[in-house]
Amino acid sequence: MELEKTVIPEGLRYSRGHVWAAFENGLCVLGWTDYIQQNAGDVNYVELPEPGKRVEKDQEFGTIETSKWVDRLYSPIAGEVVASNREVLQRPELINQAPFGEGWLVLLRVDTAVESPTLLSPDEYAAYVQTCEER
């Protein structure tokens, strides 16, 4: 799905904090969405948790800085960190260049196979992005 210039891939789930989530076999990959990376600008710095760390739903799992954005990253799901993307720590521009690919952030082993009902489908996220644009 494309919303003007924003890419919203099918098959993923989205949080209102503009984090995408990809679920498979009890694991979940999280990343920053295309919409937010375009709005926040060049990512200069990202801080991610070490493997083994617990992450709670709606709690901070890292921080991210661009030239006009300094904020925490919030996980839309609870779980244990299996891996953090070491490459984006060295090359944060990957989050801009490939937000759904090489720019992924963390891999979690999720607590439950049931996806959080607060996560949005691509259509719902597209509608949410529209409201963000109108603000």
Binding site: A40, K68, W69, V70, D71, R72
Partner: peptide, 8 residues
């Protein structure tokens, strides 16, 4: 400043 975002 600006329309920058800082801790939400």
């Amino acid at each position: 400043p600006g329309r920058m975002v800082y801790m939400g």
